[in-house]
Amino acid sequence: MEPAVSDDRIDWFYSFRSPYSYLSGPRGFELADDYRVDLRFRGVIPMMMRGESVPRSKRIHTIRDVKCEARRLGMPFGPSHDPLGEGATRCLAVSEYANDQGRSREFVLSASTGIWAEAVDLTTDEGLRLVSERAGLDWPGCLAAVRDPGIAERVEANTEELVEIGHWGVPVFVFRGEQFWGQDRIDDLRLVLDDAGLRNA
């Protein structure tokens, strides 16, 4: 098996159900524009579907905090539609397919915006098709990915790897073995990438 992390590569663990992952989206993909790194999107199964619980106080704070952060970042937030369960599973499958098609950025941003700013229901074919086609993906290919057990295994592997590296939340960026947890640590990651001399001229 290929090592989890190698030089000049960033593994980006992301959950479609995490609003902080959503906030990290545009700036996460910009890393690949600004630095000579191989940015690997790694969609993971939501915490709640992995048997972890989130206290009510944390849920309330998260929504309030994300609303403020979204405003600061100039990103829309709300209305949302919780993709927990089938919605997240289908979205993760299509994200793997999008990766294969070289349209990871388009799909992740389209689907996340659908979930967190447009209340698109991704458990329905109509909803998933909308976010997939506007990302430039062909719908039959997306449907095939949703039904492909090999793709489901890839998502499982991403999730297991997040656990193996000892992390618990998302988004997490891993560069040369160092973990950067949170959308508010992207600037710190950029400093490290600058130090490594990886900024594009």
Binding site: I60, I63, R64, K67, F77, G78, P79, S80
Partner: peptide, 9 residues
């Protein structure tokens, strides 16, 4: 969520 968002503003 929509109520929390409204209150936060």
């Amino acid at each position: 969520p929509s109520l929390i968002m409204a209150i936060s503003t």
